[in-house]
Design a binder for these strands. Structure first.
Lengths: 195, 195
DNA sequence: CAGGGTTCTTGCCAATTGGCAAGTGCGTTC
DNA sequence: GAACGCACTTGCCAATTGGCAAGAACCCTG
């Protein structure tokens, strides 16, 4: 069982930890595999999945008042995949998390996260850093919705995550960007002319 | 020094803690007062302010690419006021936090937060709960930007926080809702006709 | 390779929102 | 109380985005 990707990831976010601590933390995770279209989490359940994704793409989505699917997040390699509110507050999830491709990674439960959280100071730091990063990312997205045009948001996404476009449907990307698939299609046409 | 508001707040978010633990945590905070228009944080600095607001209203704001002011957050009574990214990641803040009214509350520094975080298990839980709540709130806001109209977002805000409208300028509220002051003015006109 | 389903694109028109500039209302100051 | 500044409103028009429906492109599956 090669946990190097996991260890590397924790270390990147926690340079101060020594090798033994890192492997101790990593040992608490279980290897986990999803096939394309498998669900990591379904709405209506309380999430018990803290998943570190080493290979593949996933997305989180929910439904709006008119029952339209809205993609709330995409996840790629080397990211922690979880529904923060449901996992930490033990509330029923309003979101689904599904594999866009075959996926591979490492899983840990709420109970184990808590155990590590209280017994390993370095893991506390790691957990907090994760949460702060995710928070900052969401804040940036809210800000982008406010002060950037749909075209700018599209440009940002394709430049930062071109590979995503090979795995996600344009309709999913559109709802993530806060526009309809029709508008996204038009933006892509304009974009193709210039760039 | 009556720290009851602070103790009550911590207890609400941490029902398991006993009285002694609560007073020990509260003892680490310092009373702090701001006059209207005073800044709690200025962009360009690394935030060292974790502020529990017991009375008054505050707002956080930044500037977009065209140098327009964008209000990113409003804070009322019984809320923790801080710039999460700057405070926890020790990065330079892109945001200002300013008092909309005279304010009163309790302050704690990054160093003391960390001390408590590692030495008091109950405070770890408290800190994590705060962060998770703030995260969930921002996520809800992003979602609202995507699948609600400007009018619905306005209705939500005025119903959940009517008092805010007595202290913040409509232009500030408009940028928080992701629209111009012109549009907000029109929405309010329509709204007044119906409701 | 024919048929059927899904995704994506396009055209047309409507609704929402923005930009600008002028106007109104209100409080402050001298 | 006249003059000024500031916040807010309004009118006019333009730009952006959405809704709908039809068509094109593509992929399965038999």
């Amino acid at each position: 069982m090669d946990r190097e990707p996991l260890i590397q990831f924790i270390q990147t976010n926690l340079p101060a930890a020594n090798r033994q601590t890192l492997t101790d933390i990593a040992a608490q995770f279980d290897e986990y595999v999803l096939l394309k279209n498998d669900y990591l989490l379904r709405a209506g359940r309380v999430s018990d999945e803290y998943f570190f994704l080493t290979d593949g793409f996933m997305r989180a989505f929910t439904f709006d008042a008119d029952n339209n699917e809205v993609t709330t997040n995409f996840f790629g390699k080397d990211r922690v995949v979880l529904e923060v509110a449901s996992f930490f507050m033990r509330t029923v999830s309003t979101e689904h998390i599904q594999a866009l491709t075959d996926c591979r990674g490492y899983m840990i439960t709420f109970e184990t996260v808590n155990k590590l959280f209280h017994s390993v100071p370095e893991f506390r730091e790691f957990g907090r850093t994760m949460l702060v990063r995710e928070y900052a990312t969401f804040k940036q997205r809210t800000l982008a919705m406010i002060n950037k045009t749909a075209e700018e948001r599209y440009a940002d996404l394709i430049h930062s995550n071109r590979e995503l476009f090979q795995h996600a449907q344009l309709k999913q990307i559109a709802s993530y960007l806060g526009i309809t698939d029709t508008s996204l299609s038009r933006i892509r046409r304009e974009f193709a002319r210039k760039d």
